[in-house]
Amino acid sequence: MQQELLVVENLSLHFGGVAALTNIDLTVRKGEILAIIGPNGAGKTSFLNCISGLYRPSGGRIFFEGRDITRLSPHRRAALGIARTFQNIELFKHMTVLDNIMLGRHVHLRSGILAGGIYWGLAQKEEVRHRRRVEEIIDFLEIEFIRNRVVGSLSYGLQKRVELARALALEPKLLLLDEPMAGMNVEEKEDMARFILDIAEEWGVTLVLIEHDMGVVMDLSDRVAVFDFGRKIAEGLPEEIKQNPRVVEAYLGGQLAEEA
């Protein structure tokens, strides 16, 4: 029996009269890769936003390692070990790649204004110690050559990779990836898929990812959850999901499914 890392109970989210999410129950087990799929506007990103604390859910509860985090502020959740990437890259554009990734280690660093301003001594030791860790991540994601570049000047694919590096620097227990392969070519997708598998296997990180590329989803994920119109309509192993008539209907439309 695998341990449960994240338990979402009866989660609902409303914007005024619009229901973005309705009564979602979902459990993420330690060490697995869970993919969330569904048509546009199904509520996948809203769901991630609820977990990472960007949105306050209207109802329901979220437990992380048995602790109720439903009302916890985002930065506290990060300190517990929840990291994420964004659908539209949200990097610190005017900072270098190195600084972006170093910021990912914010929760692990301690120096405050005084130690930082005096620098020589405490803060410098800390910087060097954590720089070592950051360099490991840079090596792992193969972005050594852009280390000192300002992020805003990088290509889209590289920015995605830097964003992943920044999230990894947090050393998360749970990593939420919102469309990590959107807009990438086949080669970049293959690289990213390899990184994701390595993160799960070598680093022991539990992953929840939203992805539209079915091939990628079926290859990478241990389990798949399907959302449609703010509800979870199916959950199971990738092969089961492929056969599920409700999923086929949601994706292809009712009529087509009948014909097929």
Partner: peptide
Amino acid sequence: SRVGRAFMAIRDRDLAAAM
């Protein structure tokens, strides 16, 4: 160092910094 980076992160993308 840490505080200065946090300042710049807030300037560039506050929500990402919070996350």
